[in-house]
Write a protein that binds this DNA or RNA. Structure first.
Lengths: 192, 192
DNA sequence: CGGAAAAAAGGTCATTTGACCATATTTTCG
DNA sequence: CGAAAATATGGTCAAATGACCTTTTTTCCG
């Protein structure tokens, strides 16, 4: 089980064995079943989460009860609500498993310690944050400017591997379009 | 001119005089005239930018030539294209002045040096990045889920001071709706 | 395996939205 | 100041979209 995570880490940073062991020693493995929540809005996000395998989603709810997916987190990605985690305050978002998944959890206290002591890890964290900002910008521009069809194509291009693992209504939710519109787009594709 | 910037900095972090002087000494003041570009897509974003006064906008262009505003940067805020700046690679975005503005510029080399030497500044930078992520999430959720009317109200609530300084078509561009729709919303308000 | 639940697709219709155009008003700047 | 540009508003219309509902298909899980 270490194996997976070790491969991931080593792909990004050079760590000596001791640091790796320490990071690993503080990680709490957890199995999350399909549809189980890792975080519910109103709760405080207490952990950094690394997805070893499976697939999670982060979503917000609107007043009328609709769900809108902000992010998919497949294997070898991280997830949390940063605002809730950083300030240990109630979250506005939900994180739930789409597939049965295995994750690693670190408490904020533990992870802060690791970040302080292991510069390579700190640098990885900063890289992840940066990429988060870059992709967030692109996503926003798409949300503002693209037609539903363009959004769908961009999604397929960007996450070819996720397409087959997601129910369509979640893709629609992620794109901010109705499932009806998504179905129409896909039908139009077929007829070509 | 230092004054403005000093007030800003001191509001967020405690700096000894020497550090403040050093930050200031490396800053290049620049006046940007209305409609002038600070960054054009395709160019490399070479500076961190602090807006002393005035108002800038960051926007992307779609294939059909439409502009979509990602961010307004009024006085006492920072702006750049992080992706272009971090990797010194061509940008996909544009930054231009809406009002005549005065900004401070730091080259990446200089600012990296400051960040490395002044932990307080580093901590401020991290705070800014975090807030960027938080607000980006909220903005995305709004873009995905809100009606044009809700988007407009949220904008007015969030940036009451900007409303009077912006042409409506820029607000529409920021919200991802047509100016026609925005006009309709505002007319409906009046009639109540 | 089989029944129940979830997901996808299809039909219909009202509404919203944007495109296009013209016009009035304001602002800019030489 | 005054011409030109920018901005805001208004009208009209077609198209896209979502809401609601039903039917079919697939998936899940005991």
């Amino acid at each position: 089980m270490m194996h997976e995570f070790e491969i991931y880490l080593r792909a990004y940073i050079n760590l000596n064995g001791g640091d790796l062991d320490r990071i690993w020693a503080l990680a709490v493995p957890k199995a999350v079943r399909r549809n189980e929540f890792l975080l519910r809005e109103g709760d405080i996000c207490r952990h950094k989460t690394f997805v070893m395998n499976g697939l999670l989603r982060t979503f917000g709810k609107t007043a009328d009860g609709n769900e809108h997916i902000l992010q998919f987190s497949p294997e070898h990605s991280w997830t949390l609500d940063a605002e809730s985690y950083d300030h240990q305050q109630p979250s506005s978002y939900n994180i739930a498993a789409i597939e049965n998944s295995e994750v690693l959890l670190w408490s904020k206290a533990d992870f802060d310690g690791l970040l302080a002591d292991i510069p390579e890890l700190k640098s990885l964290a900063e890289q992840l944050i940066s990429r988060n900002i870059y992709s967030g910008r692109r996503r926003l521009l798409t949300a503002l400017s693209a037609t539903p069809e363009e959004k769908y194509h961009e999604f397929v291009q960007s996450f070819p591997g996720l397409l087959a693992r997601l129910p369509l209504h979640m893709i629609a939710s992620y794109l901010g379009i109705s499932i009806k519109t998504l179905t129409r787009i896909r039908q139009a594709q077929l007829r070509r």
